[in-house]
Simulated scan of single mutants.
Amino acid sequence: MITRRQLLAASAASASLAVAPAVPAAPDVLRFVFSRPLDNPRTQWLIRVYTQLTTELGLGFAFVEVPPKRATALVLLGEVDGELGRTFDYQLLYPTLVRVPEPNNAVRFAAYATRPGLRFDTWQALRAGGVRCEYRLGIVELERMLLRELPATQVSAIPTIVQGVKKLLLGRTDLYFDVEEAVGDYLYFLNPAQRHATSTMRQAGVVLATTGHAYLNASRAALAPPLAAGLARLKRQGDVQRHLLAALAAYKARL
Rank of each mutant, 00 (worst) to 15 (best):
T3P: 08
Q6F: 12
L7F: 12
A15V: 13
S16F: 14
L17C: 03
A18T: 12
V19F: 05
A22E: 13
V23D: 13
V23K: 14
P24K: 15
L30A: 09
V33N: 14
P37R: 00
L38V: 05
D39C: 10
N40A: 06
N40C: 05
N40S: 10
N40V: 05
R42A: 14
W45C: 09
R48T: 10
E56C: 02
A62P: 03
V66E: 03
V66A: 11
K69S: 12
T72G: 11
A73T: 08
A73H: 12
V75H: 04
L77F: 14
D81G: 12
G82C: 11
T87L: 07
F88H: 09
Y90L: 01
Y90F: 02
Y94V: 02
T96K: 06
V98Q: 15
V98S: 13
R99L: 11
P101E: 03
P103Y: 06
P103A: 00
N104G: 07
A111D: 01
A111M: 09
A113G: 02
T114L: 02
P116D: 07
L118S: 10
L118F: 00
R119A: 09
A125R: 15
A125P: 06
A125F: 10
A125K: 14
A128I: 04
G129H: 01
G129I: 11
G129A: 04
G130C: 13
V131Y: 03
E134T: 03
Y135H: 00
L137I: 12
E141I: 12
E141V: 12
L142T: 04
L147M: 14
L147C: 15
R148K: 11
P151T: 08
A152I: 13
Q154I: 00
I161A: 05
Q163S: 06
K166W: 13
R172D: 03
R172V: 11
D174C: 04
D174R: 00
Y176W: 08
E181V: 09
A182Q: 06
A182S: 01
A182F: 05
A182I: 01
V183F: 13
G184C: 06
F189Y: 01
N191H: 08
N191E: 10
A193Y: 00
A193N: 07
R195C: 09
T198H: 13
S199H: 04
T200Q: 08
M201A: 04
M201L: 03
Q203S: 03
V207E: 04
A209M: 02
A209K: 13
A209F: 01
T210R: 05
T211D: 02
L216N: 08
N217L: 07
A218Y: 10
S219T: 11
A222Q: 01
A224Q: 05
P226S: 09
A228I: 02
K235W: 08
K235C: 11
K235A: 07
R236I: 00
Q237H: 15
Q237N: 03
G238T: 01
D239K: 08
V240E: 04
H243M: 06
A246G: 02
A246Y: 06
A250V: 01
